[in-house]
């Protein structure tokens, strides 16, 4: 059955504020598709964000929405989830928001394995503030603060999440919304901290400075860069040079989830104290 997108959107807040052709719209569409496929109730779902173009997404979603401070979405979301462990909590953040100013919160949410779904829209740039380089800007690329080319090495957000302990990690891209939706759905269904990186286009701030000001050209650039995990396994290393692997990168269904651990702790403490509640 077709997804009734308007059921999940605050139609009166449209049109959205993103540039025409911005990839964030595709991520939001995939996100709604995933929520719909899982049958999540809007009343039982919170969407939390920080600051940036991506972080405006919750405002358009007809759920319990929280637009917080720069980098801190996961901290607010952790409070929401710990206080209401039986509800669904989704964080949507950009690359700068999640891995620069919010990097510490990111690794600690991974470590705790709290049941929050973290969607990172990675467009390799700070879009809203005017195109400064981010921790995922490719080496050599031009940005407002790298007019002579970027010398900062980039983060691999998937590896960062895996290393820090996230129990579901996947990467998709906006040139393939269907695949992205599948990872979003699997990540949301996963009981633990899940990270879904969505490679996206900011043609306005990144593309313009790197000969890709047309969104179609920039999405093609992404499409040519990505290789599915299944394909990559059959490719020789020299062909993989400069490619980005998409797919389910990591999954662990064994590690205990944090809110479960805490509710068990409450039970233990109350049993010992003889509290009957």
């Amino acid at each position: 059955m077709a997804v009734d997108y308007l059921h999940y959107l605050r139609a009166d807040k449209l049109p959205h504020m993103w540039c025409p052709g911005c990839g964030i719209g595709i991520v939001v569409k995939s996100m709604i598709g995933a929520i719909d496929a899982l049958g999540w109730d809007k009343n039982e779902t919170a969407v939390v964000s920080g600051i940036g173009c991506t972080s405006r997404a919750p405002g358009y979603m007809d759920m319990n929405t929280l637009h917080t401070t720069h980098g801190r979405a996961l901290t607010f979301a952790t409070g929401v989830k710990m206080a209401a462990p039986d509800k669904h909590v989704i964080v949507i953040a950009g690359d700068g928001d999640s891995s620069a100013i919010g990097g510490n919160h990111f690794i600690h949410a991974c470590r705790r394995n709290i049941d929050i779904t973290m969607i990172i829209v990675n467009n390799n740039i700070y879009g809203m503030t005017g195109g400064q380089f981010s921790p995922t800007t490719p080496y050599g690329a031009k940005a407002a603060t790298t007019p002579h080319g970027n010398i900062d090495p980039a983060f691999d957000l998937g590896q960062l999440a895996i290393g820090a302990g996230a129990t579901y990690v996947a990467r998709g891209s906006v040139d393939n919304g269907r695949m992205l939706q599948k990872y979003l759905k699997d990540g949301m269904a996963h009981h633990g901290f899940s990270v879904i990186e969505a490679l996206s286009n900011c043609h306005t701030q990144f593309g313009r400075r790197n000969k890709m000001s047309d969104p179609v050209v920039m999405v093609e650039w992404i499409a040519n860069k990505v290789v599915t995990k299944a394909k990559a396994e059959k490719m020789p290393p020299e062909e993989l040079e400069g490619k980005i692997i998409t797919g389910e990168l990591h999954r662990n269904d064994e590690r205990p989830e944090y809110t479960d651990e805490y509710s068990q702790l409450i039970q233990r403490v109350q049993k010992k104290a003889g509290v009957h509640q």
Partner: peptide, 25 residues
């Protein structure tokens, strides 16, 4: 935990402030 409440030690001061706002909501 004795009264069914939640204690969490966060990764930093900023995070603790964010968490109590989220929980209050």
């Amino acid at each position: 935990p004795e009264v069914g409440g939640t204690f969490i030690q966060m990764e930093d001061e900023i995070a603790s402030m964010g968490a109590i706002i989220g929980a209050s909501l």
